[in-house]
Design a protein around this nucleic acid. Structure first.
Length: 242
DNA sequence: AATTCTCACAACCGCCTGCGT
DNA sequence: TACGCAGGCGGTTGTGAGAAT
């Protein structure tokens, strides 16, 4: 039997109040992010440490970008998802000011539907076999995506410093991993949109996480590691951005 | 105006990994 | 090497707001 991460009794759950937010912000401002387990008590919060961490990381951190996703952000999410699958934290790491939870929610509520409407299976980024694709709208959307992608790539190019700053803080492994996938295939240099800032150093993640869900997704993982010679190569969503 | 439905998003839960002992 | 703990991650659920009937 697994021990609970914290005592359940006397612990608040659900939405955070402004007072709670303030306590958390005040505490972290003066003490920094420390031991999440002991933080609630020290900060005078009746919350689980995990809950505090989540609240801080996803909503209270000063560098969080709130609001709608820009078209370029959306395009980037699609591309990264084609590369990485449901590795939301890695994807979020490429989106300055965005959190994994936010990216995940956005994917599930917006992007998934959009891809499905376009006749693309959001899980593998391949065309649905049995869902008839509305040709006209599909084409128009592709055109639109291609167009927007050109624009989308610009900010990442222009804002390289900003992006790099973010990337460096979010783990070289992610960057190295992505870069490897892209550089893996010398014959397909256009996997990453030319202007997209996926220009990162090379390395293989030392121990790719194999969660149970990923085990179910072995095919997917292999696609990622074999990117360039595998099926992702023909990913329609990636094709959209070529 | 009231009720039902749908959607978006905040938050929780359980599992996994890394690290210290 | 084995074990326990803390942090991190992804999947899922709960809930409130707005739309539709």
């Amino acid at each position: 039997m697994r021990k609970p991460c914290c005592e359940k009794e006397g612990i608040n759950k659900g939405a955070w109040s402004k007072q709670e937010d303030k306590k958390l912000i005040d505490y972290i401002s003066s003490n920094g992010e420390g031991c999440w387990r002991s933080l609630p008590k020290a900060a005078g919060l009746r919350r689980c440490g995990k809950s505090c961490r989540l609240r801080w990381i996803n909503y209270l951190r000063p560098d969080i970008k709130r609001g709608n996703f820009a078209q370029d952000e959306e395009d980037l999410i699609v591309k990264l998802h084609a590369l990485l699958g449901n590795r939301w934290s890695l994807i979020a790491g490429r989106l300055p000011g965005r959190t994994d939870n936010e990216v995940k929610n956005y994917w599930n509520s917006h992007v998934r539907k959009k891809l499905i409407q376009m006749g693309i299976d959001p899980n593998n980024h391949k065309p649905h076999q049995h869902i008839p694709r509305p040709l006209t709208s599909h084409v128009s959307q592709i055109t639109d995506s291609s167009r927007s992608m050109e624009e989308a790539s610009k900010p990442y190019n222009c804002d390289k410093n900003d992006h790099h700053e973010n990337a460096s803080s979010l783990g070289d492994q992610t960057d190295k991993f992505i870069t490897k996938q892209i550089k893996n295939d010398p014959d397909e240099p256009a996997h990453a949109p030319p202007d997209l800032n996926l220009d990162l150093s090379i390395a293989v993640p030392k121990s790719p996480k194999k969660t149970s869900s990923e085990m179910n997704n072995v095919e997917d993982s292999s696609k990622v590691t074999e990117f360039g010679s595998g099926e992702v190569e023909s990913s329609p969503t990636l094709n959209l951005f070529r």
